[in-house]
Simulated assay, not measured.
Amino acid sequence: MMMKPLQIGNLCIDRPVILAPMAGVTDLPFRVLCREQGCGMVCTEMVSAKAITYKNKNTFLLMETVPQERPVSLQLFGSDSDIMAEAVRMIADRDFDVLDVNMGCPVPKVVNNGEGSALMKQPELAGRIVRSLVEAIDKPVTVKIRKGFDDDHINAVEMAKIAEANGAAAVAVHGRTREQYYSGKADWEIIRRVKEAVKIPVIGNGDIFTPQDAKRMIEETGCDAIMAARGARGNPWLFRDIIDYLEKGILHEKPSLKEMTDMMLRHAEMHIRYKGEYQGIREMRKHVAWYTAGYHGSARMRQAVNEVESYEALKQLLADWLAYSEGGMKAHDKNNGS
């Protein structure tokens, strides 16, 4: 399958395989790791427009980027078009390539403020927000939406048309409603319907866990790019795997235990450089659980890593896990006569 470059406004993305924005996941270290594996564009964690105008220190840390991760999309959330435009003007000269508007977050504290997927219930306001941001910044503005708010309000096609009419350069569609959160199965049919309804690029999102999933989504929906979210947690190799499968028909084996351990240690080192050892190690705990899921000894690892408080302790734990897991695999192979 030939992968056509993705054109978002004045930005050309060579490989249309994108890392979705995920709160608490897509920080700077993880984005860099995904770009190194071939990801065409990465997205920041969502940032609050109000927090930008308040000059919140933690929010500005979330917006830090480095040259090796670009192109990078900065995702903004809010519900007041004037405040969002003011926030965007404040950060317009920062090093990001695309401004994405979050209209899909299902978390109650966001939705209850009329933000995130709550905007799916207010198409006119959503349109005004897009227009205000397009006028406020000289960078492409994209919108991330869901199938609808609930099964009685499926309006992704309407929302995509409104985004396009107000100057959005692309739209990403997650094939679940807000009420579904991340449960059930993503509806790729709604992505196909959006693709048929608008002329701007459509990015498909939802249930991309394997290279075969990516190929099937492109074939079934005609989308211009795919966006991986939960499938990339603990698996930055997913982007390499998707690209090599689509372009060359190559299916990679799962990373070896040694590769996995080396990646976790590098990830931890980057976290510590970026956030300090105390915070960096604590945030690595969930990543280690994701990396090791499905491997021999993963349950024991999830329990043990929550006690780790230093890089040296993590390094020793991973060395012990590697030895334990490799020993378990050898025993399994011996018992099965291989």
Rank of each mutant, 00 (worst) to 15 (best):
K254D: 09
W237T: 08
S79T: 04
A169K: 12
I137Q: 14
M22I: 10
G222L: 07
A293M: 09
D14V: 11
V66Q: 00
N112E: 05
C223W: 11
M263A: 14
L119A: 01
A225P: 15
N58D: 14
F149E: 00
K50E: 11
D262N: 14
A85K: 01
A170G: 06
P5Q: 01
G184P: 12
I250D: 14
E269T: 12
L265I: 02
Q316H: 09
L322C: 04
S183L: 15
Q316E: 07
Q180F: 06
A118N: 11
V72C: 09
W188R: 08
R282L: 12
A319E: 14
E253Y: 12
D93C: 06
S73F: 15
D262F: 13
K121I: 02
D27I: 00
V72M: 00
L125R: 10
V88M: 02
V288H: 05
K121D: 03
R192H: 15
A168K: 01
G249H: 06
G104C: 08
I8M: 05
E326Q: 13
D320L: 03
I154P: 10
L257I: 13
A85C: 12
N205Q: 11
A170V: 07
K315A: 14
K57G: 12
V171Y: 08
M3S: 04
Q279W: 14
V88D: 02
P29D: 07
P16G: 03
M270L: 15
G116D: 08
G167E: 08
A169I: 03
K199N: 15
E247W: 15
N113C: 13
V42E: 02
